[in-house]
Design a protein around this nucleic acid. Structure first.
Length: 811
DNA sequence: GTAGGGTTAG
């Protein structure tokens, strides 16, 4: 044995036990404490046993257990526990139990720690004020609230709840279990609070989405005269990072500078993270560069923040730096790297990262495999993703979510929905992924139905859910639902951030409620160019050119830089408002004032604007003179204008161009046939329709929907499928009767079918919008009233029929 | 002895 012993211990082995006993005791204990590995320790233990030195509950034995805990591996902890339990006769000391409980707790093996506690109590030992903090830390890691509460109860019974250490641990424990308010109660009852008490509660708030409370508690602490230490600083800085509040972060930084607390690596890292989360990259980089002992965590912080902000390329630049001069990348580095690859669609780096993960045995960590599945899906490598997925031993909800999101991106909503249905466990992200997938696939009613199902299962929507639902609602034009969405957001205290605010503005705009849209817009805390575009879109929807231009000028005043899209909204406002001059002005100002060249889409807007105004020649000239090749949209737009102006010759030319560019476009045939029809050229109509039939092109029938009591009812022209068709039929007769009484004569020029006048009138009386309106009139109280008074618009959709009626003297 | 940094999916 002695030959393999650590050299220094050989020197200290006594020659005579009697002579050296006092010295040996101290030296052996010192040796135990210095052991770096379990093997070293085992040998020493064996040696001491031979000399009869290591009996329970001697000081030697205590030190042995402490040394095992110090080493901290699972093996060393089990070795100590076996030593404690070996004879089952002699009683180990309380110190030994405390030590072991602490060891298991800090190794993350809370269950074992709790078992030891139970064993100790069963043996009749009385826990002390050291036992509880260790045990509570074990409980918080395994997140069992009821176990912690029992410990709390015992501590109270034993009169130890007044102990500062015990109370501090209780605060931490409750916060970890998500019950920070219980931690607050403990804090409030404390007679003596130290810096750890404050820090524990600050950290509890910061970690539970109550970062505001955390920062305010920090300033209360300073006011109370308690000096914060580096740990407190780290907690409060990370609270500022969570709030993304740069001003507050700077205030805390200023305090740190004043107080003279020395920066340690953790604080530097927290500061770098805070500055990056607040968007102040320069300050973050400066602090990082100035730090003389950069560690991997700091690199990881910068990388993950770059990925978070969507600057995946910059993240990979940092990776290069790590590989050149930094420490070896670890699993967190690789997680950010893989996420960056997913973002960039960089399959090559993605694949080598996957290989690195496998080579370095990092694949045991579920998160990294999830990220790999996600990366392959985002790089379009469905096969590779599925292969990793199939071999994953622990598929979590995140894994499934990545998969369904990937399928959705692939456009395979059907598969995504099937997997979603089969999922054993769904979280909010699963629901949001699926709801937004349906919205993207224009399956708006299904999206709303799924949202209802989600609520039925007791899950409430968040910001992301509501962005999807607001968008679905807008496309459906369901105003009642839109109002409900707005109330839901308020009631559930969902933060109206830029994205949600913009979605809600757009929703009201599409539902034909401009005043609600503008009300929401005016209340938005922050407005970017997309938000302004949505508001300008409200004006466009109303054909309010002046309003749109005013908003645009206001936007410029607030130093928001216009982008391509806002000009589209602006031009469309001019177009809908029939404001040709303003439209031209906006168009030319793009280059002159805003130094941006009009894109093809802007030329398209101009063609639309000129076409609607009947300036077909000017529109054609613009198409012919623009610096890029005209696309099918422009010709389509011109064609539509020709139809309105009944210019068959130009229509023919535009249609030809259009067919060359997009032979598959259904609209061309339909429009062309309609143009021929309106000019009475029925032989040409027949020819086009025959062509359509030959090519297998079918017009998707137009439909109108109406929302009644929160349900959407959809009608197509001549639709008789509705359950209440008989009543609808009666109402149509009633409407027609009333209309003719006041002298209404249907305008049949838009019925582009080769049928006689009577048939045209019949078709017109049953087109989809009229059916939807008739249904609205019989099903809503407001509708019934409307029939009697007919004073305004009862529909959420702008309704041609209604315009027709009002235009004929109904209002 | 109690409190502290970077972590995937929508």
């Amino acid at each position: 044995m002695a030959t393999t012993l650590h050299p220094s211990s050989i020197v200290l082995v006594p020659t005579s036990v009697k002579e050296a006993k006092p010295r040996t005791t101290n030296s052996s204990q010192k040796l135990l404490a210095n052991c770096k590995t379990l093997n070293e320790l085992k040998q020493l233990h064996c040696d001491m046993m031979k000399k009869g030195l290591c009996h329970k509950p001697s000081g030697h034995f205590n030190k042995l257990v402490a040394a095992c805990v110090q080493i901290g591996t699972l093996e060393s902890l089990d070795y100590a526990r076996n030593a404690v339990q070996d004879d089952g006769v002699s009683m180990p000391s309380l110190y030994v139990y405390n030590c072991l409980i602490r060891g298991y707790a800090s190794a993350g093996l809370g269950e074992q720690a709790i078992l030891l506690y139970i064993q100790m109590v069963v043996m009749g030992m009385v826990p002390d004020n050291y036992t509880f903090p260790f045990l509570l830390s074990a409980c918080s890691k395994t997140m069992k609230l009821w176990e912690g509460v029992q410990v709390h109860g015992t501590a109270v019974k034993m009169g130890l709840d007044g102990d500062t250490f015990v109370s501090n641990s209780l605060i931490h424990f409750y916060a970890e279990c998500g019950k920070v308010e219980l931690g607050r109660k403990v804090f409030d009852k404390m007679l003596e609070r130290n810096v750890v008490s404050w820090t524990s509660l600050i950290n509890g708030y910061a970690g539970r989405d109550m970062a505001k409370e955390a920062v305010s508690l920090f300033f209360q602490m300073v006011e109370a005269g308690v000096e914060p230490n580096p740990v407190t600083m780290v907690c409060v800085i990370s609270a500022c990072a969570k709030l993304k509040d740069l001003e507050l972060g700077k205030k805390v930084c200023a305090y740190i500078c004043e107080s003279g607390v020395e920066l340690n690596a953790l604080m530097v890292n927290a500061l770098v993270d805070m500055y990056m989360k607040c968007g102040d990259i320069c300050s973050a980089r400066r602090i990082f560069e100035e730090c003389t002992d950069k560690n991997l965590v700091m690199y990881n912080t910068i990388m993950s923040n770059y990925v978070y902000h969507g600057w995946a390329g910059d993240a990979l630049v940092i990776l290069d730096e790590i590989l050149r001069k930094g420490p070896r990348p670890d699993k967190v580095t690789m997680l950010s790297t893989i996420a960056a690859c997913a973002h960039l669609g960089d399959l090559s780096v993605g694949k080598s990262s996957h290989a690195y993960v496998l080579r370095n045995g990092l694949e045991g960590w579920d998160n990294i495999l999830n990220a790999i599945v996600d990366m392959y899906m985002k790089c379009g490598e469905r096969g590779a993703a599925c292969k990793v997925f199939e071999h994953m031993p622990n598929k979590t909800v995140v894994t499934w979510n990545s998969l369904i999101a990937g399928l959705v991106r692939d456009g395979d909503v059907e598969s995504a929905w099937r997997i979603f249905d089969e999922m054993q466990e769904r979280d909010l992200v699963s629901w949001n992924t699926m709801i937004n997938a349906l919205v993207q696939a224009s399956m708006f009613e299904e999206a709303i139905e799924l949202f209802r199902e989600m609520q039925n299962q007791g899950i409430e929507g968040d910001r992301v859910t509501m962005v999807g639902i607001a968008s679905a609602c807008g496309y459906l034009g369901a105003l009642d639902l839109a109002k409900w969405v707005c109330t839901y957001i308020e009631k559930n205290d969902i933060h109206m951030d830029l994205q949600l605010g913009t979605a809600v503005v757009d929703m009201f705009s599409r539902c034909g409620d401009p005043s609600s849209a503008m009300h929401v817009f005016r209340r938005m805390e922050e407005r970017d160019v997309s938000a302004w575009t949505a508001a300008i879109g409200v004006m466009a929807m109303e054909g309010n050119t002046e309003g749109a231009i005013e908003l645009f000028n206001e936007m410029l005043k607030q130093k928001v830089k216009p982008d391509d899209v806002v000009f589209v909204a602006l031009l469309s406002a001019c177009s809908h408002g029939g404001s040709v001059d303003q439209g031209r002005q906006v168009f030319w100002s793009m280059e002159k004032t805003h130094r941006t060249s009009p894109q093809i889409v802007h030329y398209g807007c101009m063609v639309d604007l000129l076409g609607r105004a009947g300036l077909l020649e000017e529109a054609l000239h613009l198409i012919q003179s623009m610096p890029m090749e005209p696309n099918d949209v422009m010709w389509g737009s011109l064609l539509a204008a020709c139809r309105k102006q009944k210019n068959v010759e130009l229509a023919h030319y535009a249609a030809e161009k259009l067919t060359q560019l997009a032979p598959e476009r259904v609209g061309v045939h339909v429009l062309l046939s309609n143009i021929y029809a309106s000019a009475g050229k029925w032989t040409d109509v027949a020819r086009v329709r025959l062509q359509m039939k030959e090519k297998g092109v079918q017009k998707v029938p137009g439909s109108s929907s109406i929302e009644v009591h929160g349900l959407i009812h959809e009608f197509t022209s001549g639709d008789e499928s509705h359950a209440e068709n008989t009543q609808i039929e009666l109402m149509l007769q009633e409407i027609n009767c009333r209309l003719s009484k006041i002298g209404y004569v249907p305008d049949t020029t838009n019925v582009l079918l080769d049928v006689d006048e009577q048939e045209k009138e019949h078709l017109l009386s049953r087109h989809s919008e009229k059916l939807a309106m008739a249904y609205g009139l019989i099903t809503t109280a407001q509708g019934k009233l409307q029939l009697e008074t007919i004073t305004g618009i009862i529909f959420s959709r702008k309704d041609i029929v209604l315009v027709e009626i009002i235009g004929n003297g109904f209002s």
